[in-house]
Amino acid sequence: GGHTALLGKTQDFFQICDTEGKGFVTRRDMQRLCEELPLSSEDLEDVFDSLDADGNGYLTLEEFSSGFSEFLFGRRIS
């Protein structure tokens, strides 16, 4: 159902970041996205830091998807 579709979308997005198909995203991969997305490399650095929950410098699909679901469901409107 919807959960599977969401998982697929997360994987799509993860692959956009992980252009080399390594299975994880590095800070450098993230910075490369500033050519494709309307975000500065500084913004992308912030994104990386917020998604890299354990701060080891590698963004896994699990970390990526938990950040994505937080964006989808956990966003608080003040």
């Binding site: 956009i16 975000l39 912030d46 830091d49 989808l72």
Partner: peptide, 29 residues
């Protein structure tokens, strides 16, 4: 709380990021 402030700022950046990915996906099939 400075941590709360940082989280709120990051939330905006994250939202921007995922929104961009979403529009990129739909923008180029």
């Amino acid at each position: 709380d400075p941590n709360m402030k940082g989280a709120a700022a990051n939330e905006g950046v994250l939202a921007n990021f995922f929104n961009s990915l979403l529009s990129k996906k739909t923008g180029s099939p």
